[in-house]
């Protein structure tokens, strides 16, 4: 019995220690926002890598999800003669939930894994130590540009994802389900509120922050060897995905609680 209590206590302490480490890492990252030097070149590259090069995967994910959503709502709505709500539900579903969450998860898969693997490899090949000996703070040079770029560019990616998702629903709705094109767009525009868009973009910023932060954190914490890099990469994606979904719930509660 005592052994069980001891192992339970050790596990709880380990969780709190991990939360503490992430909290300290987050605070350190934010503190570098106001402490020069800054590295605009690295920030620009991070914007390009995280933002521009993620556009194809974000666009394809959103397009197919919007189309599938239209089909599902049409089929489900037909059970109680509510097929006409397809434009409205596609719009609200994409903008409030699916747009930010799917883009967040795709970024966790594409960007978080890439950041974690890159930084972990830099750590095991002593490139992080080399940065320090070259009078360059690794958090300023590696972490801050990536986290800042992801936080700023993710709302744009989510916005693009929302629009393409609605467009996917529009294509399926007008070409497959027989909706009038002008009426579909009118219904979409009439139904969406400013709050929907604001919540979507806010979620994007928060998810971007989480995705890049987890990549950097796990990369910096990586252990030695190929296995260490693998563990860091896997851990970063899992942590980013879980935290994005948890943050989504909290933000939805904050924006739309009844």
């Amino acid at each position: 019995m005592m052994r069980f209590v001891a192992s339970l206590g050790a596990a709880v302490l380990a969780v709190f220690a991990a939360i503490g480490r992430v909290a300290i890492f987050t605070a350190q990252t934010i503190s570098h926002l106001v402490r020069p030097p800054f590295y605009p070149r690295e920030f620009g590259q991070a914007l390009l890598q995280i933002g521009y090069f993620s556009l194809p995967v974000v666009g394809l994910t959103a397009f197919f999800t919007g189309g599938a959503l239209a089909l599902q709502i049409y089929a489900g709505g037909a059970r109680f003669s509510a097929e006409a709500v397809v434009p409205q539900i596609v719009a609200i579903g994409m903008v409030r939930e699916l747009g930010p969450v799917l883009v967040g998860l795709m970024i966790a898969a594409r960007v978080t894994s890439s950041i974690a693997a890159e930084i972990a490899t830099m750590k095991v090949t002593e490139q992080i130590d080399a940065l320090v000996t070259l009078s360059t703070h690794p958090m300023k040079y590696l972490t801050l540009p990536r986290v800042l770029a992801a936080t700023l560019v993710m709302p744009l990616l989510v916005g693009v994802g929302d629009v393409i998702g609605i467009f996917g629903g529009y294509i399926v709705g007008t070409q497959r389900l027989g909706f009038n094109a002008a009426a579909y767009l009118q219904n979409t525009a009439d139904f969406l509120e400013v709050r929907d868009v604001v919540s979507s973009l806010t979620k994007g910023a928060v998810f971007g922050f989480i995705a890049a932060l987890m990549g950097c954190y796990y990369g910096m914490q990586s252990e030695r060897g190929a296995m260490g890099v693998g563990r860091a990469t896997k851990g970063s994606v899992v942590a980013a995905a879980v935290l994005i979904l948890a943050a989504n719930f909290l933000l939805t509660e904050a924006f739309f609680s009844v």
């Binding site: 490899t121 830099m122 090949t125 002593e126 490139q127 130590d129 080399a130």
Partner: peptide, 9 residues
Amino acid sequence: LFQGGALFD
């Protein structure tokens, strides 16, 4: 000079 060079890829 690091053992493996530690050059930035």
